[in-house]
Simulated assay, not measured.
Amino acid sequence: MRGVLLRVGYVLALPAVLVALWWLASDGSTNVYWPPLRTILRTFPDVWTGQRLHDDLLRSVLRLLAGYATAAVAGVALGTVIGSYRRVRAVCEPVLEFLRAVPPPVLVPVIMLFAGIGDTMKIVVIASGGVWPILLNTVEGVRAVDPVMAETARSYGITGAARLRTLVLRSASPQIFAGLRQALSIGIILMVISEMFAASNGLGFAIVQFQRGFAIPDMWTGILLLGLLGFALSVVFQVVERRVLGWYHGLRATTRRS
């Protein structure tokens, strides 16, 4: 119990300090663009009612999860194939490096031409940006599979799906999760950008509408909610990562002790 409380304290310590500094720095501010934090917090429950949370926050989260899941499936699948076969990697690598260098926000107008301005466009934008860190980390993770373990698996007749599940993906899983973590941050950014381009709901849409209506405290509440969403998703990701990669973290801890 004490260890859990210490971890929670470590997680909340820096955010608490930053909030306190924000409160002190903005206290007494008369700048219309930089309202006091107490004003923002007082405005928050009036702006983010149950209906608005359903129409904007929930819609944004669903789009993010759909795009993120699409990027994860495509990135792991393609990365496993490319990392497993040298010739496929040699053919695909120049094209992948070119596509990876194209900033996903630049593709939003192009994607709008083919996918329209509905939820499909926003999901595609999120997936198109999040797929690259997952794919490239998966490729490197698959390439780094221990050749001794690979030869042992071959000797024992472990092939096909069993080899993929128990050896390749398991060995590459630490790097896959590194890519998934990067993709989550990229996905949140692209979620907001896609909703600012063409949308009738979502966090990005709401923040832009507040800004255009000169409702500055309301706009800050949207930014604050976006930060809280990113923090919550990061905590959930860490819990899942710890559970899935428990064997890996245990191995690292044993290695450090020895």
Score class of each variant (00 low, 15 high):
L229M: 14
N31D: 14
L65I: 13
V148Q: 07
V142F: 01
E195V: 08
R100W: 07
R7M: 12
I158A: 09
G116A: 13
K122T: 03
L169M: 14
S171H: 14
E241Y: 03
S29M: 04
L226K: 00
V8E: 01
T221R: 06
G202L: 11
V145L: 01
T166M: 14
I134K: 08
R163A: 13
S234V: 08
A198F: 01
T221P: 05
R143Q: 06
R2W: 11
I223E: 04
L18C: 08
A72H: 09
V73P: 12
M196Q: 13
F237W: 06
R143N: 02
R42M: 12
G9T: 06
I40T: 15
G230H: 02
E151I: 01
V125D: 04
A101H: 09
T138Q: 07
S29W: 02
I134S: 10
G246E: 03
G67R: 04
A25D: 01
K122F: 05
G129N: 03
V4Q: 13
T221I: 03
A162V: 13
Y85C: 00
F205S: 04
L245N: 11
R87Q: 15
M219N: 08
A72S: 15
F205D: 10
A127P: 03
V19T: 04
G50N: 09
A253C: 01
I123W: 08
P104N: 09
L107F: 02
N31L: 12
V91N: 08
V95N: 04
Q238A: 15
L62A: 14
L18W: 00
G118P: 09
G179R: 00
R38I: 13
L251N: 08
R212M: 12
L245T: 14
I193F: 13
T138M: 07
W48L: 12
G213N: 09
A20V: 03
W34C: 06
V47A: 07
P103R: 12
I223D: 00
S84M: 00
G75R: 06
L164V: 03
G50Y: 06
L14N: 03
S185F: 09
W22Q: 01
V110T: 14
D218W: 09
R252F: 06
G28S: 05
L167G: 11
L135K: 01
R59V: 15
S258Y: 07
I40C: 11
L169S: 10
Y10R: 12
W132L: 04
T166R: 12
L203W: 00
G118I: 11
L37A: 09
R59I: 15
R243S: 14
L224P: 00
V102L: 14
R257K: 14
G9S: 08
P35W: 07
